[in-house]
Design a binder for these strands. Structure first.
Lengths: 339, 339
DNA sequence: TTGTAGGCGTTATCAT
DNA sequence: ATGATAACGCCTACAA
């Protein structure tokens, strides 16, 4: 069933059918009625491929994420926001997940190019030279989310992971903690891994607290990994940190769970600070003290930014946006009484 | 930049270029080299739209979800599994969210048709007559996930929400509870809403426990809604249930949080049972006793089923799959000592 | 107001 | 082994 069939059934030319469908020109009442009748009866839907091919516009946005477990990340909220903005502007979403594999990512960028998506929302994590070679001549508008690139100037929407992590660490210091364990993420995740680690380090430096490498552990976003990292930090009963900064709430939850299993109460025996402010954070026992990041705003801004980038009529474009964050004081951190 | 340009640059015909790209026929060593050089140099990527138009096949699967908040649902894991299976088979994903609006859903089905997706994964929730009218002549293969339809025979992959909820309720009864509060979901969500409620009711009936309407409340998936529902159930200090069955873990978490705020310990003062076994469940305080559903398997099965449905060579098709579930005894339910 | 015909970028079918 | 050419289904001048 194509436009030609519809035209035949209605006894008009394909142009007339097209005009009825797209309201692109005057059509006589009589012809319009006949066409609409056929349309209704047959349930005909125009073939987007043909239309998009001829108009060179797909009304599709590629969304590239790179996570191992969607439910373990705070992406869901951003994606939710994105679907809203794009839907409101009649765009569709093509979703792809690279799972942290750089090669996979490049292949996805190729697919997006072949599919002729109109724009790309790129939840980056680890922007390598490989990417640079591929993307420097990439014609499709891209907005990076969650990370900026040192190799290439590209519009982005990010959290201030560095300062937020510094703020979190300084908060612990202000609360009297000098021996602060760290549960980080691999460096190949530049934002959540590298930047937050840097923030932790700088806070120490600026407060003249020497960094203790044995206090720095690493997880992989999962609750379990937070649990295991905490195990290491608590291994020696005579030499334990008084506080722990876990760079994601889920790892913080794992850490607290581990502390409990080892007979330690949070925050009485040890303080734990998270990062993200996921939904459960406020309802955990104890309620998690954490950094609240505005993931919803990030999704919304990124989608809006991309849309404006794609709009050739509009030359004034904001191309960088850093989302706000705030520290949520709840129940998992307590001041260290200086004895 | 199109295939013609490449042909010109390489000094061959477009047919030859096509043959090189698709490895579809013999090409002389000489010509192949020249074409490949141009391909590499220009970074040319064939236009999928043109190819798909001509082959009438898009290698794209539409995934339709209907949630208000992606992060509050257990969908993420299924989607993760789906992306894996489809990626392994070279399919792309077009993601759309109806947010429980039936009209929106119909519009999405139309979009999928226009976009000529090869198949659809449909996370249904509330299949209405409207849908029936639209889908009975819908030519694209669809697999429903999480719900089956009473109106139309359609392949599906589901959890056994009814029996699982019955099992959960009966477990509470076996533990000596006779007064069991209920935090459900709206009936328009047939699986998570209606079916789980039915299971709760049947368990009562079969154990000759009268149903108390004032014990039945309703949430909306969110933690907050679980908290509010629990508030109602605990309103009267002289008339409280001894256990509560919350039909999602997140609502259970909200409920426990509320109990804590009202000075009640779980499970000592009141037992709480969840449903889903989300990641945090095992690490909550207390660890949640809940129904574990195999969301990953559901995603995998659904994708595989759809793929086999789309394969016209293969006539033997399984079209229904009910995923396994299990009861996870953890720490939020305790036996009621019969005094 | 309506219809004809060319073109969007491919692949596939023919000849050569 | 290679190249011309007709589809695929639509939109859009242009002509009538």
């Amino acid at each position: 069933m194509n436009i030609k069939d519809v035209a035949n059934c209605a006894g008009v030319s394909i142009s007339t059918v097209s005009r009825v469908i797209n309201n692109t020109a005057k059509v006589s009442e009589d012809a319009r009625k006949r066409v609409e009748a056929v349309l209704k009866e047959t349930g005909y839907r125009p073939n987007s491929l043909a239309r998009e091919l001829q108009q060179n516009k797909t009304y599709t946005i590629g969304v590239l994420i790179c996570v191992t477990e969607l439910s373990m990340s705070s992406l869901s909220q951003s994606i939710n926001a994105i679907t809203d903005v794009l839907k409101a502007n009649n765009y569709n979403i093509m979703l792809a997940n690279s799972r942290y594999h750089a090669d996979e990512e490049l292949s996805i960028f190729n697919t997006f190019k072949e599919k002729r998506v109109d724009g790309i929302l790129y939840f980056a994590a680890g922007f390598a030279k490989k990417h640079y070679a591929m993307l420097k001549n990439y014609k499709i508008p891209i907005v990076m989310i969650g990370q900026k690139s040192n190799y290439i100037d590209m519009p982005y929407v990010i959290h201030d992971d560095f300062y937020a992590a510094k703020t979190a660490t300084e908060y612990l210091i202000q609360m009297g903690h000098q021996d602060i364990g760290f549960i980080g993420l691999p460096d190949y995740d530049e934002a959540a891994g590298l930047e937050r680690k840097k923030g932790y380090k700088l806070a120490h430096e600026m407060n003249n607290i020497p960094l203790n490498p044995s206090r720095m552990t690493e997880g992989d976003f999962s609750i379990e990994s937070g649990y295991e990292a905490m195990k290491i930090l608590l291994k020696n009963p005579d030499d334990r940190p008084t506080a722990v900064f876990a760079t994601t709430d889920f790892m913080a939850i794992g850490a607290i769970s581990c502390a409990n299993d080892m007979g330690l109460k949070v925050p009485d025996d040890i303080s734990v600070m998270g990062f993200d402010d996921v939904h459960v954070a406020a309802f955990y026992q104890p309620p998690l003290t954490t950094i609240h990041t505005d993931t919803h705003a990030v999704g919304t801004k990124a989608a809006e930014l991309l849309l404006s980038l794609m709009d050739k009529e509009n030359p004034n474009k904001i191309t960088k946006y850093v989302a706000s964050y705030s520290l949520m004081e709840r129940g998992s951190v307590r001041p260290l009484s200086s004895i």
